[in-house]
Design a binder for these strands. Structure first.
Lengths: 346, 346
DNA sequence: TTGAAAGCGGTACCAT
DNA sequence: ATGGTACCGCTTTCAA
């Protein structure tokens, strides 16, 4: 059933039927009622391609997820983010087009999306430092929102970011206040902007307390369970081992936890453990009343929702000034941190 | 730059340019070369809506993820599955349209996708028993592939499933062979078809060994870390506690692990632990050489790839007979299982 | 080998 | 309040 057939059925012009369906005010209520009822009855839905061709809008948002050949780990965070975003899209009649592309094809993917007009805007995931996507998207004139920021990009753009630097600084300071001075930092890949900023936060906290930096206590790797395990093994095997850890993700924290378990070290007793917590739905940090890990918490799903709102707003009003939102993470005190155990003379 | 502009630039008709770009044989090689070069130079990409309108094909696949209001946990498995699928789509020029919809809107979502012609086929995720989506999609005439199966649906359809029943039967039998008779089973929600089949496998293994079924050793819940933790707490608190666990997912297993840790029980020594392992990229089961958990393993990402291939094949050849693929999971022996510790008189 | 022109199914401007 | 009609950009049949 297409518009022509529906209009013939109703003895109305396509124009009127279209107007009735799209809520134009000049249609009489009785006509509108007839039309909407007939449309529902015959399960009429306008052809997406035709609509997009006629209006110039595709009613779709592109989410491009870079997936490099070397580390093709799929970010568990991505799933929760798009769940949040799609809540918003659904309400506004937008669809979500997801592309997972190899790093090297990524810029071309954006050009393609823009030129084909298959999306009205894009969400930029996982910004790196000096991210080339941002100037490209600006030059393409395609509305976009960055989840995160990109150090070294001078252009203006919409972004929503967690204050990663401050979040990690805060949990590190917390560990320091408990007497820890050998604090292992298990970070994500530091070409990623968020990880770069977190590193800054860690270093800043050490500096503020006059604690020397030990490269052996800093790891930068993919945010996986084995990465956490490896880092913890290495940092606990040092002659002057870590007494506490700052971890970049609950997934990584699980790996650290496994190491502690293997070494018969009790969390929150022998070793303190603080984490960043994105509130991944399958891996909650205990219950709201009783968090397990001391953590800097910020919901990635809420970020997905908000980024989607910002993007739809930008699309609806292209001349709007760019929006920047910096969210502060919440410091959650769990049972995984406590004053340093005096296992050695200090 | 659209087709008309490009053709004017080249002093050719739109027809010829279109043919050159789409690989029609009648175009002379010299013309084709001129055309493709100009297209690349001007970054020409055909308008998606126009193409879809003209051809009737949208070159997009719909992935509809049900997300009920009550349990809005986002399956971490979903991320890996779509990563696999999108590899295949990318190669064939297909895009992936992801909708996360409330359970109650789901059937309408499929009708909408079909009527609007915004996708050429859909992937069905998370089939439940007697899943109403299958007869609906058959009646809509929209090509689809089910990741899993649906007990109680009589219609024919394309599916790819892991032999969930056999997989869980096998790991349970393995625990039984090690002397365990109090085996806790931490399952997913049993209205889901895969969980229902796994339950069967568990029960079948017990029956085969003449072990009585104890409902207190069976839990069915969302596949989250806390669910694993709760189940393990309950089953270890019984007067005749579990000595081993069969878990439905690595995520759940992590929760069980936490319980054991809290109770100072050593994995693979005091308590045995076997799992289903979907090979989620952020949560690998140790390394290939040294798996941590004894598990029934089957890559969800590979399933995503294969389901995508099946779906594109169905779209390319709509009269093809339905395909059914039943994958056997691999039994992986890790260090988490061993012969029962004789802690009690038995 | 190339081109003209009729759709594809809507939307929106201009009339009435 | 309703209708006629010219697009939107591409594909494809038919003609040359």
């Amino acid at each position: 059933m297409n518009l022509r057939e529906l209009s013939e059925l109703l003895n109305l012009s396509q124009t009127t039927v279209s107007r009735a369906l799209n809520g134009y005010p000049e249609v009489s209520e009785s006509t509108r009622k007839r039309v909407t009822e007939a449309a529902a009855q015959h399960n009429y839905h306008p052809n997406a391609g035709a609509q997009s061709l006629a209006t110039g809008r595709s009613m779709a948002i592109g989410h491009v997820m870079p997936m490099s050949a070397n580390h093709e780990m799929v970010n568990v965070i991505f799933a929760d983010f798009i769940a949040g975003a799609s809540e918003i899209y659904g309400r506004s009649g937008y669809r979500m087009v997801v592309s997972m592309v190899d790093d090297k094809d990524e810029l071309q993917t954006y050009r393609d999306l823009a030129q084909r007009r298959s999306v009205d805007g894009v969400m930029v995931h996982g910004p790196v430092r000096a991210d080339p996507r941002i100037p490209l998207l600006n030059s393409l004139g395609l509305p976009f929102v960055v989840h995160g920021r990109s150090t070294g990009v001078e252009a203006e753009y919409n972004w929503l970011d967690v204050n990663n630097r401050r979040a990690i600084e805060q949990v590190t300071e917390h560990l320091i206040s408990l007497g820890h001075r050998r604090i292992g930092f298990v970070n994500g890949m530091e070409h990623m902007d968020f990880a770069f900023r977190r590193r800054d936060g860690y270093l800043s906290a050490l500096k503020g307390a006059g604690i020397p930096v030990d490269p052996a206590l800093m790891q930068s790797a993919e945010m996986t369970e084995p990465a956490g395990h490896n880092a913890a093994c290495a940092m606990l095997g040092l002659s002057d081992p870590a007494t506490a850890f700052v971890s970049s993700s609950i997934v990584v924290t699980l790996g650290i936890r496994r190491t502690l378990e293997e070494m018969n070290l009790r969390i929150g007793q022998d070793i303190s453990l603080a984490s960043f917590d994105d509130e991944i739905s399958a891996l909650p940090n205990g219950s709201p009343e009783a968090p397990i890990y001391t953590a800097a918490r910020s919901s990635v799903r809420a970020a997905g929702r908000r980024c989607a709102e910002l993007l739809l707003g930008q699309i609806a009003n292209p001349t709007r000034a760019n929006v920047h939102e910096l969210w502060e993470a919440d410091l959650i005190l769990g049972s995984s941190t406590r004053a340093i155990a005096r296992r050695r003379a200090g």
